[in-house]
Design a protein around this nucleic acid. Structure first.
Lengths: 251, 251
DNA sequence: AAGTGGTCTAGACCACCAT
DNA sequence: TGGTGGTCTAGACCACTTA
């Protein structure tokens, strides 16, 4: 007899923790209860709690700090979640982009967008266009599609007046914690508008990135199409990964 | 006082296991000794051995099979290490490419190649060009640079006569186990040769992928430049990852 | 039935941080 | 000094494969 229904205890604990995070029982930046307290609360051993938290750490949902506690990951504190920006200078150095918002409009989701965002066709969305500069040169044009239902009171003033990253705004103001992105890359030709913004000639080769951003329980948050001038920059992808390990990772 | 020298026991065990793997004490496809035996051999508890193997599993160096044992990962068995091919049809389905070798030549590493492959400038290399077809259409041109010192007796007959993937050939014949790749993507224009091969017009926008393949202890194995026609295909990158977990990963 | 990996527990001790 | 996470141990029991 097969037992495909079985879920180990630590997975159920992880699920309970994820629910607590999704419902903001512990908000970004705040500490979770200590492993000891969680073990008593869920009536399991501390090792089982640790295994649940281990997976959340792998997924970058929480961050352990020895001697201090385990904290809900934030989108400001360090580039830890700056881990969502993959464009690097060909030389190698990573740089934080300067962002200029070119347009902020209200619109409706088309069929494809609705399907990807898991909302109704023609549901209200924001459409935002940003120009990102690296090394002082305009390099990326971002077109964002964001369901208005997720960010009810958002407006241009709030969006532009934010004092941090866009994902940090989603997180701090709307409790939307972007945890994961899925991206599809292709080569494209510059259309006249984009060519002008990036200072390249029409028909130049550009890199197109179609991203979907996801939060807890894999719920979609945002669609983003980025068009990148790769004359001086690359998209960097290090699969085989680096599961953020302590101590010397050469071993 | 800081203690930056400290390395936990399980990391040292992992290092010993990695050495055994690099020296083919256990060859690809073969089982490691059971966790029990390893614990006795290294005189540690089984939990410590498990933690060492856990990391090797995360890195896809070995594969656990409940009830059977822990096996050195291979490049044939299933698409597990087919996890190195990121081009997918825009529709979504993943397909194994048809490969045709266009040229197989001997040459010397230039400065840039030598630096990336960690070999001497002008060291002997193979230069191989392959044309990959998907959905019956030529879609990718691969240019491979491979140090001859790593694959001493390789020749065109062996290369073309292989009965499996290229990485499987490296692994089975030369003990070179490609574990990880690091890739940089950019947009490029088709040069006349490539345009002809891919059946696109000159100056068409194509996706360029520069990959370096690494083995144990991060030693470089191969350089590969892929040029992709992205009319019908995308490069798929799912960061947030999927650490190949057992049971229902929704939890 | 025997052997493997997978889960869960309980407890000791270490490293680090706050106070 | 007390509390936190990090490591290591020892042992029980479960799930799965092989024979």
């Amino acid at each position: 007899m097969e037992n495909s229904e079985y879920t180990p205890l630590y997975r159920r604990i992880k699920h309970l923790l994820t629910n607590g995070l999704a419902h903001r029982e512990w908000a970004p930046g705040e500490p979770l209860p200590s492993e000891n307290k969680l073990a008593r609360r869920f009536e399991v051993s501390i090792g089982t709690v640790r295994k649940a938290i281990d997976e959340l750490v792998d997924e970058r949902v929480v961050v352990r700090e020895q001697g201090r506690g385990t904290f809900v990951a934030t989108h400001n504190s360090s580039r830890l979640l700056f881990h969502f920006f993959h464009i690097v200078e060909r030389g190698g150095s990573k740089e934080y982009p300067k962002i200029k918002t070119l347009s902020f409009r209200r619109g409706r989701a088309d069929m494809d967008e609705a399907q990807k965002l898991e909302i109704a066709e023609r549901a209200p969305v924001f459409r935002i266009r940003n120009l990102l500069s690296l090394c002082g040169r305009p390099t990326i044009v971002d077109d964002i599609v964001l369901p208005r239902s997720l960010v009810p009171d958002l407006n241009e003033k709030i969006f532009i007046g934010r004092d941090n990253t866009i994902y940090h705004l989603y997180q701090s103001r709307y409790g939307l914690n972007v945890l994961r992105t899925s991206e599809r890359l292709s080569a494209t030709c510059a259309d006249p508008d984009v060519a002008k913004l990036l200072g390249v000639k029409k028909e130049a080769s550009l890199l197109e990135i179609n991203r979907i951003a996801l939060t807890y329980h894999h719920a979609p948050v945002e669609l983003r199409r980025s068009v990148v001038n790769t004359e001086r920059h690359d998209y960097f992808s290090d699969l085989g990964k680096s599961p953020l390990r302590r101590h010397d990772p050469r071993f």
